[in-house]
Design a protein around this nucleic acid. Structure first.
Lengths: 192, 192
DNA sequence: CCTGTGCATTGAACTAGTTCAAGAACGTAT
DNA sequence: ATACGTTCTTGAACTAGTTCAATGCACAGG
């Protein structure tokens, strides 16, 4: 049950059996059906969730009513609204399951408890956030500097599994282009 | 000398006089003239720098030779290439002073030493990276979802001081639009 | 078997933003 | 004062990407 998540945390710092046992008592396993919301705009995000199985999207609705997908999360990813979670302020994001999911939830209180009892987790979370920041910066650079076809090719190269599990509408919304234009890009690419 | 940076770190966690003294022995004060590089593409970034005085830009050159500014750093900001710094891999970024600067440098080795001697700094750095991540996510959302005039108005609202210290060419390159188009936006706005 | 619903495609008209080239405005060194 | 580099502005032609509406297509439900 805990193999995957243990392997994940051990990649960043080496934890003892005992430390992992404490960790296990503080995370909650839950299954969530497809098309349910873990978080909606206005709520305060009280969890960080690890995806053991399934697929999730984290998105935002802009002033014109457009969905912008910030992140897909599949197996071995974490999902949360970090701004809302840490500053306990209402979220601007939606987190929705795209498939039936098996998840581990870590609440704010349990995270603090974990950090108190196993301070080594400070380092784990710092490294995790650093990695996330550096990939977000990369995405920002690509979003600004690359053309739509380049962004699409990068996406399917970087996330081959995700690109086969989500609709093209979702991919377009992640890339920040219209679904129609993505379709035109795809037909053009397939003709080459 | 250390008042500003001490106030900065104390905002995240409360440090004792003694802990701050250790911190002070591990950071290096340096002045750097205008238009010098703290980092260039291909180098490994071995520092995180706190800006006591001055203005810095952190940018990237894309395949078509365009500069994309990732960050401006003025007084009380930190600047680094976090991907290069933490994974010790060659940087894709340039970090250049736009004014004469007074900086504190924290090297990789000194940071590790600091974390070993004052573990409370783990928490400080985690919170700092979290904040940075959440602002980068915000910027990503804006970059994808907003029109160029909106982005510009947001920028001058969010960074009124910066927008008066850097050229419009730099602002355009931060916003991901051409300098000419920014100029057209500005004349249009001023006519209203 | 038909029917509805959600997803992908296509085309035509449109628009936001780019590119290029020329000129204006400004500070500063000579 | 003049000349020079640097920044900013303006216009005209262009292009990448959008919008809207129509069409096809697959597959789940009755």
């Amino acid at each position: 049950m805990f193999e995957n998540i243990d392997a994940f945390v051990n990649r960043c710092a080496n934890f003892t059996k005992n430390e992992l046992d404490i960790f296990h008592t503080l995370i909650d396993f839950k299954t969530v059906n497809k098309k349910e919301y873990l978080l909606q705009e206005g709520e305060i995000c009280n969890f960080e969730a690890y995806v053991l199985k399934g697929c999730i999207r984290n998105y935002f609705i802009d002033e014109n009513g457009f969905e912008v997908i910030l992140q897909f999360a599949i197996e071995d990813w974490w999902v949360s609204d970090i701004a809302s979670f840490h500053e306990k302020k209402p979220s601007k994001l939606y987190i929705e399951t795209l498939e039936d999911c098996e998840l581990f939830f870590l609440t704010y209180e349990n995270k603090e408890e974990l950090l108190k009892r196993v301070p080594k987790f400070e380092r784990f979370f710092r490294l995790m956030v650093q990695k996330k920041l550096s990939s977000t910066q990369n995405r920002l650079i690509n979003t600004i500097a690359k053309s739509a076809p380049e962004k699409y090719l990068d996406f399917i190269k970087l996330y081959p599994t995700i690109s086969q599990r989500v609709t093209q509408h979702h991919i377009a919304s992640y890339l920040g282009i219209s679904a129609e234009f993505l379709s035109k890009i795809r037909t053009k690419l397939s003709k080459q």
